[in-house]
Every structure is written in C-alpha cells, then in structure tokens.
Design a binder for these strands. Structure first.
Lengths: 238, 238
DNA sequence: CGTCATATTGACTTTAGTCAATAGAAGTGG
DNA sequence: CCACTTCTATTGACTAAAGTCAATATGACG
C-alpha cells in the first residue's frame, strides 16, 4: 500500500526498517472515491492526510461564482496535504479526479514521526518541498507559457511522475481526466483546452486512444514545452 | 534581527528560551542588496537560507526567451527557501526586488534543529506550509481572477502580511516594486498592470503617493478582490 | 541640465473566453 | 441488444481580455 510512497522518499535518503515498520503501521483506512467526489472539504480540519494508492486526486480551490482552480494533481505515491497536520484548516478541498483509492494517515501519527524519527521527518518535509517545487513550475507555466506550451509541459511532467511510480511506460500513460478538469488546472477554458489538444495531435506530438496519452517523440514534446525535469527530481543532497 | 521571524513562528506555537537562543546563534552574515540584484542563482546549491530583515525579495524563475515569473514576494520576517537544505539545487533564483537586507542561516544549522528540536522543526515546517498556502492562493488568482481582482487581491495580502511584521499601518504601506516586476508576479504585461492600477485608482480603491499604497476603504478593496485572509494565518492547531 | 529608469498613453493584434449547437461515447434499464 | 440519458468532446461564430509596439511623459539623481 505504501510501496510507491516508499520508493519515492527513498530517493531522498535511506529509510530504516524501524521507520518502514512505523510507516506501515500508521497507514490505514483504504477508501475508494469516484470522479468528482470530495475527499476533504475546504475550510475543514481533517484528522488525517491522504495517500493516493491508485488513480488521480487533486487539490482544488473553489471561489464564489463557481470558478475553480485545480492546484495540483496527485498520483499514486503522492500525499495530498501531508503538511495538513500543521495548519488549522485546509485552504482547499481534495477531490478525486478519476476513480481512485486513498489510504489515510492520522495526523497524530505524523506528529509522532516528528518526535521520534528526525531523518524520516526530513524525508516527509522533503516530500512537501518537492510538492511546492511542482507548484512553482505550474505557476510559471500559467504566467509565462502559452496554452500550447503549458499543456505540453504538463503532459511531460505526468509522464515522468507516473513512470517514477510504475504507472506509465516509456512513452505513454492513462490520463483519465476530463478536458474540463484540465482546464481548471491550467486556468484555461474547456474549449481552449480542446483546441490546444487538437493542435498537439495535429502536430503529431501526442496521440490519444481514449484516456491513453501516447507521446511518439518524447524529446520533441519536451522541446516544445521547454521542459526541464530538475524540479521533479529535487534530488537527494550529498 | 530575528524579531519579525520569531513573532511569526510564535503564531504557530511556543518557542522555548533554548530554541530562541539557538536561533539567534545561527543567524549570521547580514547582507545588503539593491533592486534587481541576485541573492541566489537558479540551479545552484546555496549553503544557506535567507531571512529577509528589511525590504522586499522574491523568488523568480527565468525561462528561455527572457520570460520571468516571480513566484513569491518575501517581506521582513520571511525566509526565502527555508526548505532549500532539503533539495539538491534550487529551481529558481532569489532576487532583491527593492533595497533590502538579508540574514543568512547555514543549512547545517537547520539540519541541527531537525535533530535536536522537534517542536521548532515543526514550526519551521509550518512556515514552509504557510508559504505554500500563499503560493496556492497566487495560483488561484492567476487562474481564476481578472487582472483587476488579482491586483486588488495582492494589495490586500501585502497589507496583512506587512501589518503582521510591523511594516504597514492600518491602511497603507510602502511597496517599492516597479510595475514591470509586479507584472512578472501576476503573469501580466507591464502595460496592463499600469492600466489596471489606474482603474483601481479611478475607483478610489487605492491612492498612491510615490511607493506608498493607501487603501481608503480596506473592506471595499477586500470585497472587490474576494479576499479571505484564512490562508495567511494558517493558524496554530490546538 | 542631461540621463536613466519608470510610468503612462494610443493604436493595433493576439490569445483566450463565451455561448450555443452538435456529435460521440459510456452506462442504464428494459 | 436497443432506446435513452448523461457526460464528454468537438465545432463555429463572436467577444473580450490582455499583449505588443512604439511614442511620450514624469521623476529621481548626479
């Protein structure tokens, strides 16, 4: 259940058997959600953090007038709001974006980690730091890249992130997310997302078969996107 | 030198005398920078984090073609990249946006804190969590708010953040940042920032005297911006 | 006084948004 | 298996927000 997550944080540093055992013990309550279902609500104080084990979830802000911003996509191995135990209330909701499975980890257990396992604490903190780095990259996309580049960039990001946890092969993956939701993530209208995807298809940068995205020439797509994966690896220090 | 920062993290929880003493000891090297000067460079691994003690700094990504995105504004009491010690290289640069003073804290000292002071570690982690919350709000502004609302929103945010550290009075503050840089922060062109500021002035939502921003009716501006300060307080848990 | 950076303005272009209709695809119940 | 509903994708015509380019003003400062 925590395999993907363990694989990820071991990119930061060693995790001892004791730490692994503790992690395994505190991950509980496997839940299933369907697309659009709310996992945690904006303004609430959920007593646990969510670890995605399959499917896609997202953090979402909703403004008056129904405007929505998807702040992040969480894939298997990702914690949604690991740092939630530090803040009184969450400033966004967490929603399933596709069929997905979520394991919940009580905040008290995370607080325990910070008392007993300094190294593991740093690994968790590191995970939130990488998460923030991804957010900075998205923000840069929104501010500086055209819709075409921005979408290409996200498709590159998802390829690498899904590969890291074994949910993508060398050049393709399933992205079971509607164009409307993608629009909410990019700050673009559904119509514009649709047209931009068509342009990417026309230029043979992507091929889609249902929810599957195939990237015939990964390097070409990266070039269009101006994609540099450094922010994703957030590699281990010495 | 760390007064503003201490005041801020004490909103999260108590800080013991031993912790305060340790913090005081590790803050060193006061540096001055002028507007536009680079404090840390994208792709590098600076051996310390920066604490702003006066003026404004910002985190900035630069893309090929000279496009720039300002990812955050750091005001007195803010750490730029506290979590930098966790990542191999920083994915953005840090620049002075106005005349400013920066205290540097070695990463090794932050690592020490994580070994010896679990509670203080949580407080630092909390600080980075609030930082991430601000980023989420900016992202929401970029995706969902019009230029007019977005600028109004930032002006509200800066009022509260500067008030929290004693750099603003009840309805005004100095914002010594050029319209060009504001544009880089919003993902808007300089010209559009200029016109939008004019619109805000025309509607009497702000008055400017040089770098000073005066907000005659704070509630009115908040209303235009759809401003809810919850994300900034990220208040202490029980 | 001249220089430089910043702010402002006008005219025009481009990107992306809106509205509304149509087409496909997936799932449901009979 | 088919008719029906519903959600999602696609298209077209039009609008609006924001960008670009280029000129001009303003202001700080040596």
């Amino acid at each position: 259940m925590i395999t993907a997550f363990l694989a990820k944080i071991q990119r930061y540093g060693q995790v001892s058997e004791a730490e692994k055992a503790f992690l395994k013990r505190i991950v509980m309550h496997l839940h299933k959600y369907g697309p659009g279902q709310e996992i945690a609500a904006q303004g609430m104080s959920p007593p646990e953090s969510c670890l995605v084990t399959s499917g896609f979830a997202g953090r979402i802000k909703t403004l008056s007038g129904g405007r929505r911003q998807i702040l992040s996509l969480q894939v298997p191995g990702d914690f949604c709001d690991l740092q939630g135990f530090l803040l009184k209330e969450i400033d966004h909701s967490i929603e399933a974006l596709s069929q997905c499975e979520i394991a919940k980890v009580p905040h008290s257990a995370i607080a325990d980690i910070t008392e007993r396992f300094p190294r593991l604490t740093r690994a968790l903190w590191w995970d939130t730091a990488v998460d923030a780095a991804v957010q900075r990259e998205w923000m840069t996309s929104m501010g500086c890249r055209s819709a075409y580049e921005q979408i290409a960039h996200l498709l590159c990001e998802m390829l690498l992130r899904l590969q890291a946890v074994g949910w993508a092969d060398s050049n393709s993956y399933d992205l079971p997310i509607t164009q409307e939701r993608l629009g909410d993530a990019f700050g673009l209208s559904t119509v514009h997302v649709n047209r931009t995807l068509q342009a990417l298809r026309q230029n043979r940068l992507i091929v889609s078969e249902g929810a599957r995205i195939i990237i015939p020439d990964v390097e070409a797509l990266k070039k269009v996107a101006g994609f540099d994966p450094a922010y994703l690896t957030g590699q281990a220090p010495a």
